[in-house]
Design a protein around this nucleic acid. Structure first.
Lengths: 164, 164
DNA sequence: TATTGTTATACTCTATAACTATA
DNA sequence: TATAGTTATAGAGTATAACAATA
């Protein structure tokens, strides 16, 4: 199984590079720039979340879908509101809640962002055989599931390992 | 080519999930915890960088390899030095520079970290056919190269697109 | 004058705690 | 009393600018 070790040894730097490309390497930030959008990443994520939902969402629901804490959403919604990209309307069903709704400009921003991002991915994969593209998506999905499971196992079943 | 669109549409959420798993989902932070290391991620990255180099490196060289700004490295090296994980020795060839050298404890930390991380990856891929593993590494590498090129193209050849 | 590293400062992302308004 | 959201605060990661020491 030397071969397996070798494959693992190559996987690690790739994951590291991917992490850099996605988070600090700022793929998403550069897409924003290229789309002419002067928005922070969490802000566009709010807009994309609303876009995917196809309608207004509560602040708490946005936070859940983005998997972040509430105040984080509050802040970025405020910024988006100042820029006229979302509106905050009262929830008729609950006076405590606020429904966040994309304005036409906000919906347009989300669409432009997604369009540039998909365009870039499309360009990147342009020369790929169809089979490779399908394999990539399939294997990446499985990797995510399996790594997620492994991480969950470590978090759950490992109550401070003994020193022995 | 509807098929291609569909594949792209699936790739995007996977990249998003991966980004979350790696950066905010804190895969690396959880590995640190599981390895019993009370270190920040940049700090362990410094140690791993030294480990890979196989010997002392200058602050600037560490920054280059980590692709971060100099002061960032300075700060984390200071923390590592306080914890006895690295030593700062003078560069005999250049009195301006400082060579950063892992102590035995620092080398041990890097090894434990890598060992846990590789173990997790190994577990995650345990049930995979060998061919799938090899394909994953190959396709992931190509994806990184191609996306990198596409991003570079956007950064280089796109001097503020006209409004038309 | 150019380079290495450090100090000072600031910004982004995100979290938790405390609080307000409503249920 | 519980819930939705906001305000206040804090900490990690990282960048740039100004500066010191040495080349």
């Amino acid at each position: 199984m030397d071969d397996d070790r070798a494959v693992l040894g190559e996987l690690l730097p790739r994951l590291t590079r991917l992490s850099e490309l996605l988070s600090r390497g700022r793929l998403f930030e550069q897409v924003l720039e290229s789309a002419g959008l002067a928005l922070e990443r969490p802000a566009i994520t709010v807009l994309v979340t609303l876009h995917r939902a196809g309608g207004p969402l509560r602040v708490g629901e946005i936070a859940t879908r983005m998997q972040v804490a509430g105040p984080h959403v509050t802040r970025h919604v405020q910024g988006l509101e100042r820029r006229g990209l979302v509106r905050r309307v009262e929830d008729p069903a609950d006076q405590r809640a606020r429904l966040i709704e994309a304005t036409p400009a906000g919906a347009d921003a989300a669409e432009r962002y997604l369009s540039v991002l998909l365009g870039w991915l499309s360009d990147a994969l342009a020369g790929w055989p169809r089979q490779d593209r399908q394999d990539l998506v399939r294997l990446l999905g499985r990797l995510l599931d399996d790594v997620h499971d492994r991480v969950a196992a470590a978090a759950g079943g490992e109550p401070e390992p003994p020193l022995s």
